[in-house]
Every structure is written in structure tokens, then in C-alpha cells.
Design a binder for these strands. Sequence first.
DNA 1: TTGAAAGCGCTAACAC
DNA 2: GTGTTAGCGCTTTCAA
Lengths: 305, 305
Amino acid sequence: MKKATLKDIANLAQVSVATVSYVLNNVSTQTIPEETRCRVLEASKELQYIPNLAARSLVMQKTGLIGILVNRANNEGYWKKFRYAALIEYLERNLTERGYHVVLSSIDASAPRLDIISERKLDGVFLIDVRSDTFHHISRLFSVGVPLIVIDSLIDDSLFYKVVDDYEQLLTKHITTPTSSNHYLIVDDFNNIELVSSIKKVSALAIEDIHVMSNEQELRLFLNRQKGRSGIIINEYISVLAAKYTDPSTLTVICNAGCPDIVPTQAKLFTYGEQKYEVTLELMLKLMNNPLSGSSNKYIKIQAE
Amino acid sequence: MKKATLKDIANLAQVSVATVSYVLNNVSTQTIPEETRCRVLEASKELQYIPNLAARSLVMQKTGLIGILVNRANNEGYWKKFRYAALIEYLERNLTERGYHVVLSSIDASAPRLDIISERKLDGVFLIDVRSDTFHHISRLFSVGVPLIVIDSLIDDSLFYKVVDDYEQLLTKHITTPTSSNHYLIVDDFNNIELVSSIKKVSALAIEDIHVMSNEQELRLFLNRQKGRSGIIINEYISVLAAKYTDPSTLTVICNAGCPDIVPTQAKLFTYGEQKYEVTLELMLKLMNNPLSGSSNKYIKIQAE
DNA sequence: TTGAAAGCGCTAACAC
DNA sequence: GTGTTAGCGCTTTCAA
């Protein structure tokens, strides 16, 4: 009933553990006669051998584990809770497909502990919506040399790649045209306040026309003050809430949670979706193959669709 | 630049690795004088020591890894994609809080490979929405003795615990009362068809009054045939879609995705939520402490709120 | 072509 | 009290 090991196979097949390892891993530098190869393979099948990846990791210095670390605060609104569900699902599914295993871990936004990266010897890390004021904790990780991609966070740092939606392009070119600037804007409440500030700024709207999401009550109060105006909302889940208090046809929704389907039908919408996920994934795969492959510009800006 | 190990600390503190291990793990059977304890602690701090959990796992035969395995098919509707986002978030957050690390892995619903459980030596496993016709692959895992909880799946098996929403109680007691049975029902498309069948059956509705979700087009056609009737919908994301084609005030929504907030405001709703998650988590914690703690009834039925 | 053996970093039994 | 040492299961060098 005990799990079979290389040793068990070696015993059964009457060879050494080394040989078993060679066969099972198809080591190209070794030439094994078909006869022994078969004996080993058969024994391994009979014993239902499954390798122990912890042991392998120890010697290989590679774990095959990729971390997705999401900054979370207590009692988040559901729009925050679901904001990264689609991204996580995409990354996980594609990484799993490629033979990696994904470790999902929420980290306390106000006191991030990233020990998991070293403890588990993660081969790569996605760090999502991180506060920049806590980011210095992380800089020492670079010495560890782990490929790390920061998502949805503006950070003053030149070491790590950062994938971030290009709200500027969207807000200035497509939405707030000079001729129709009588808008209000509802901004998603990212943990990374620099991102929030940046969005506020590029919107070129007055302070009183901008609301940063906090809770339903505040949202309602803000919307009540905007009667008759049209609005831009970042995060489709927030738009669902907003539709309770204002006419959806006056809304333009910027979908950053990968679920445009829930946007009220009368609203106009833009989405950051699949494409963002693809870019993020490809970047990670590239970084893991060649940790030093680095362009000087570490910001990857995603265009909306 | 290289990661520090116990040996490095031992060298620096002028003690043996054993002593270092004792100190760092607060081994109660050993009595260490304050003086050496400090030396070790200091050295460990200076070298920024972080334990290698792969090595520890190897000797302890415990990895501290919990798997959340979600059956997924290709090209799923977004209602399926988001169905377990809240559950996963809850389990992950609470498990992480307790010092475990969560491995998230989608497995191909039509050809599940559960090697990950043995490979990674997971200490516990949640298996979500699994097809029963592929479940026999799994039975041998019990010999491994891994605590495994099956979620949202009716399975003919007496070994594993199964957490499942009690649709029967809800449908018979609360919704389809004898006096108002002129309903239609839209059922979420679980991979576990036994669950779908069971829901159909307990609803006591005629075949033509039941629609199993497949895609938006089919949903629309079905709803067009139900003009003027009231309907019950399982899965709040599907209800959003349905609201495009029918009057939301005629709908009763059973929320199984943890996001009742998106349900159209005019609709009536029931939810399976937090409570389900708590029960699932507690069961796992219990099972991990005492793998043999088993009541004979392996079905845990969750009541709606 | 095969195998003995060193060692990845850690724990714990046992000797001193 | 502290250190020595035997593993945990695996890969890989080097010798046979």
C-alpha cells in the first residue's frame, strides 16, 4: 500500500536506481538496451510508480511551481473578490497544460509576506495588485532571481516587469473626447493607489466628477448627484451595482474583470480580457526560459478592445 | 547571494545543524540554553534564513500543500468559469491563514489525471464538480490515504465525503409549493450529470418545463417559450443572461456561485454561500487531523439561506 | 551498458 | 546540552 519509489522498481527489475532513473526520464546521454528498458518500464507500471516531485525538486533546484499571489484586504467588496477570477483561471489552466503546478496564495495587502516564494522555491511569480508602499519588502527577492511579474500595479522600480491596463489611451482617445467631456468617472478601488491616482489624472476630470469605489452606500450617494450625466465605470461588477441607481444606457463600462457578460445590456463597454492574459502568460514563459531576457522598458501596457 | 541553509547557520553560530534545527523549530523535547539559542537565532536572522519546504516535506512526509482540483471542459460558459471563484477564494484564504499552501489545478473533465495528488504529496484535496463516470480513476487514491472532499458531485462511492447543495429541500419546500407549480426551471450545467438529473427529478416538473443550460442561444429559445410564466434559475450568472430575455421579476434565482449581488434586483433569490464554504473547510481540517474520523453518511447537504 | 555513491536541505534517533 | 548520522526519494558524476 506504500507508494512505490525508484528503489522498489530497481529491486523488481533487478537493476540499479540509476538505471531506473535513466529509463524513466529518457536521459539522452545514456544508451539503454531495449531489453532492460522494458523490464524497468514494466516494473514501474506494475508498481504504479509516481515520482515524488519534492525529492526531484530538491536535487534539480527547480520545483515546477508557479505562484499567483493576490493582495487581499479583509472584507473586500465582491467586485474586488471577483476581479481576478478570470485571470487566475486563465493562467492556471494554461500553466497546468504546460506541466507546471500553480500555487495560489492571498497575501495581506497591508503586511505582505512573500516567504512563500523562497520556502516553496517557486519557479515564477505573478504578483497581483500590490501596494507600492509595501513593495520594498520584495526587492531582495530579485537576488533570488525569481521571474516575477507584477500585475495592475504602478511601482517605482526598474527590476520587474509590470503588466497594466492602458487606461490613459482608453480614457483620452476613446471616451472623453474634447467635445463631450461632461462625464463622471467611477474608479475601481485597487490596492495600488498609484494606479488609482494615475487613472484620475489621465481622465482629466475634476475631483468632484470622480468617485473611487468604496461601498454601495457611497456609490449610491455619488450617483444621485450625477442625475442626467453620463458616466464611465471601471470594473463590470461595479457597473451592475451602479445600474441599480442610474440609467444603464448612460454608462460606459471598462471591463477589467474578464466578465463583460454581466454588464447591463444598454451600457457601452470596453474590455481588457483574453489579450491581457495571453501577454502576461507569454512573458512569464519567456522569463522562465531566459531569466535575463529583459528589455529596458518594464511596463507592458494593455490596450482595450 | 545563494540561499542560506541550516548548515550555513550552523557554521556561523558554531553549532551543529541538529542544534540549529532544534532551535528554529522550538523542539520541546530538547532543552537549549538561552545563550546558544540566541547565537543561532542571530545567525539565522543575519543570513536571512528561510527553510526549504521541499526538503522538510521529504523527511516529514507532509507537504503542507492542499489541492483544489476543478474539473473543467474546453470553452466553458462564463457562468461555469466563475461558479467556483468565490469558493476557491474562501478556501484559499482560510487555508493560507492556517499555514497551508494551496495548489490550484484544473483537470480535464473528460480525462481526469489526478497524478498531482501523489506527485506533490498533497495533504488534502478538494475535488470539484467531477463526472462520476471518471471517478473510478480516483478510488485507488484512497489507499494513499489522502483526505479528499468531493464538491457538487453525486458519486456512487462510500469512501469520500461529498458536500452538495440540498436542492431538493429548496425546490420542494420553498419554491414549488403544491399551489403554485406552474414554473419552469433552468438548471446549471454541472459536469456531474447525476447532480443535474437529481435536480430535475426533485423539481417534479415536466421535461418540457426544464432547461439545462448550454449556451445563450438555447436559453433564449427556451425562455421565449415560457412567456408569462415564472421561472427558477440555478446559478446567478445564468440569471443575468436570462434577464435579457424575460422579465426579471418573474424569476427566482438560486445562487450557487457566491455572487448574489449580480442577480437582477427584481428577482427573488436564495443563496448557498458562506455557510457551505465554512462546512467544507471545517470538514477538511477535521479530516486532516484525524484521517479516520468518518461518519457513515458521507453526504453533507447544504441548506440554502 | 550499468551501478555505486555523493548530495539536494532537512529532521530525529541516538550517542556522547 | 550538543553533535553525529541515517535517512526522505531523487539525479548525476564517475568509475567499472
